[in-house]
Write a protein that binds this DNA or RNA. Structure first.
Lengths: 161, 161
DNA sequence: CTACACGGTCCTATATTGCAACCAACAAGC
DNA sequence: GCTTGTTGGTTGCAATATAGGACCGTGTAG
């Protein structure tokens, strides 16, 4: 699906499989703009400064991947717009995590250009972070990653956390 | 920093700035492996099936970006290993969000190869998701994204959410 | 002294991206 | 009815990045 030399889609890892859909340079920025209300070709193009043929490719990939869908623009309008599907909207945690990491670690001198908020209060959204079964924020060292049963083994076996 | 045609690093948007560090095809998979304990060049190479020169580039970029650092492997050992910095470890929410999205929407027929857990209980980590100031899980429609004061305006002005 | 593992570098072929030109469909102005 | 401009693309070409394999210097094992 993604147009690169080596596809991740046959990998079993969910991260790789996700990146196969949204891992190319512009995909997540297109999704970000879609979440902020961009719907038309020109919106993405003008806002991102992306080349038109590249944008065409990315949009087609995202539609094919079920993240965007083409919908009629409205009564009387002839063109179609690009709208996020539920699948696409559920990428919000990824977008939020990226934005918050960037705010903390590689902030622009002028501050962030986008603020993610709790609509009800207008306040800035709290940091998205792993939580345990009780909803308590966890230290990262308390998060484990292990191979699933039946998964191909890792190569490095010197130690296990 | 990242070696692509057009750099995102001068964009004000935090998402773009983050992607400038981790947006290339392999970066996030390298970080995933590092989180699972990979430390040596060969670990990444064998596990990912990435070309060696590409791996060299990506590792150098990540070190330059402060996400990995080279550390002496240990007493008596001559080589250096790649270890996540705090900056790198804090990408965990991104990795988790990608993994959980993939598990839900593009799962492999054999199931996930990696399971992310709460170490204390061994249970699967709950879904990482935006929460309000009280720690309550939010509906995505309750999350707002708006331009910061002073940010360049969006091009599309037809509607505001 | 020889062989091999490790962590690279260098070269070439292919794939992807950026850029600019071009184009068809439609709308607005005159 | 004709011209112009906007939109949403497509097509070529040049530049860049990736995959793959050959090669290499250092260190270790035998």
């Amino acid at each position: 699906m993604a147009m690169k030399t080596k596809s991740f889609s046959n990998m079993q890892c969910s991260i790789a499989r996700t990146l196969d859909h949204v891992g190319s340079w512009w995909s997540l920025l297109i999704i970000r703009d879609a979440m902020m209300g961009a719907r038309r070709f020109k919106h993405f193009q003008e806002n991102l400064g992306i080349a038109k043929n590249t944008l065409t490719s990315r949009l087609n990939d995202l539609v094919e991947g079920g993240i965007l869908e083409k919908v009629p623009a409205g009564s009387g309008l002839t063109y179609e717009e690009y709208a996020l599907t539920e699948r696409g909207r559920e990428l919000a945690p990824v977008i939020i995590a990226l934005a918050q990491w960037g705010d903390k670690w590689v902030a622009h001198e002028k501050g962030p250009s986008t603020v993610i908020t709790v609509k009800a209060s207008g306040e800035q959204l709290p940091r998205i972070w792993p939580r345990d079964e009780d909803g308590e924020v966890m230290a990262l060292r308390a998060v484990g990653m292990r191979r699933a049963n039946g998964a191909p083994p890792k190569i490095w076996t010197e130690e296990e956390e």
